[in-house]
Design a protein around this nucleic acid. Structure first.
Lengths: 113, 113
DNA sequence: TGTAAATATGAACAAGCGTTCATATAATAA
DNA sequence: TTATTATATGAACGCTTGTTCATATTTACA
C-alpha cells in the first residue's frame, strides 16, 4: 500500500473513532473494567459467579479480611456489578446480571489459551 | 429456604470456587481487565478497533501527549493487547487478536444499555 | 554526513486506591 | 435490655501508576 492510501486509511479510522466513541462512553467502559480488574474484586465476583453468598462466606472463600471484603463489596455494589438482599442477620450478595458473567467468561477463555 | 439448606448451598459455591479458580488464573484475568480499564489505554484500543494506526495518528486521534501514548503503547504491547510492525519511519500498531475486540464489544453493550 | 521527523525511554511527581486498624451500626438471641 | 454475631465505615498509610519533561534513538532524506 502506498503512502497516500495508507494515510487515507488511517484518516478513515480516526473518523470512525471520533464518530462512534464519545468520551462518556469510553469512561464508562474503562470504569467497569477497572472495577473488575483488581484481584480482590475479581475473586469476589468469581466466587459469586458460582452462586450467591453472605459476607461471612465470601470472606472465608476469598481469604481476605472482613473489612477489606466489605469495602470491595461496596465498590462492586456502587458500580452495579453485584446486588444484595438482607435475610435475617445476613446480607447476601449476588451478581447484578448476566453481562458480568459473559465478560468474566470471555476473559477466562482469553487467559486459558 | 431454611438455614441448613442455605448453608449447604453456600458451601458448595465455595467448593466450586476453590476447585475452579486458582490464584494464577485470577491474577491473569484481573490483569487484562486492569490494562484495558484505564481511559487512555481504552481510547487507544478503541481507536485501533477501527483499524491499524501509526503512533502519530494515534496521538492525534486520542488527544494525548506523544509521550503518554508511547508509554501506554508499551504497556499494551507488553500485555499482548496490541502488536506492531515497522514500516518506513513509522511504527504501526494494531490489535493483538479478536478476543480483545470481543471483550470490548461486550463491555460496550453493557455500557450502552 | 547532517538535519528533521517519528518514536521510545527514564526520572520524578502527584493522584488514586487497597489494606489495615479501630470502631460503629444492625439484628438476633438470651 | 444486654450480649453476641454480622456487616459497614472512616481515617491513615503505603504502594502503584499515569503524566510530564527532558532526552535518547531510529530512520529517511537532502
Amino acid at each position: 500500500m502506498d503512502n497516500l492510501n495508507q494515510e487515507r486509511e488511517h484518516l478513515s479510522v480516526i473518523d470512525r473513532y471520533c464518530e462512534n466513541c464519545n468520551e462518556e462512553t469510553i469512561l464508562k467502559m474503562a470504569n467497569i473494567l477497572k472495577i473488575l480488574g483488581e484481584p480482590s474484586r475479581m475473586k469476589i465476583v468469581l466466587a459469586l459467579s458460582y452462586g450467591e453468598l453472605c459476607v461471612d462466606h465470601i470472606v472465608k472463600c476469598v481469604n481476605l479480611s472482613q473489612s477489606s471484603v466489605s469495602h470491595q463489596l461496596r465498590i462492586l455494589k456502587d458500580n452495579q456489578i453485584i446486588k444484595f438482599r438482607k435475610e435475617k442477620q445476613n446480607v447476601i450478595y449476588y451478581l447484578y446480571d448476566d453481562h458480568i458473567m459473559e465478560i468474566i467468561n470471555l476473559v477466562r477463555e482469553h487467559v486459558e489459551e
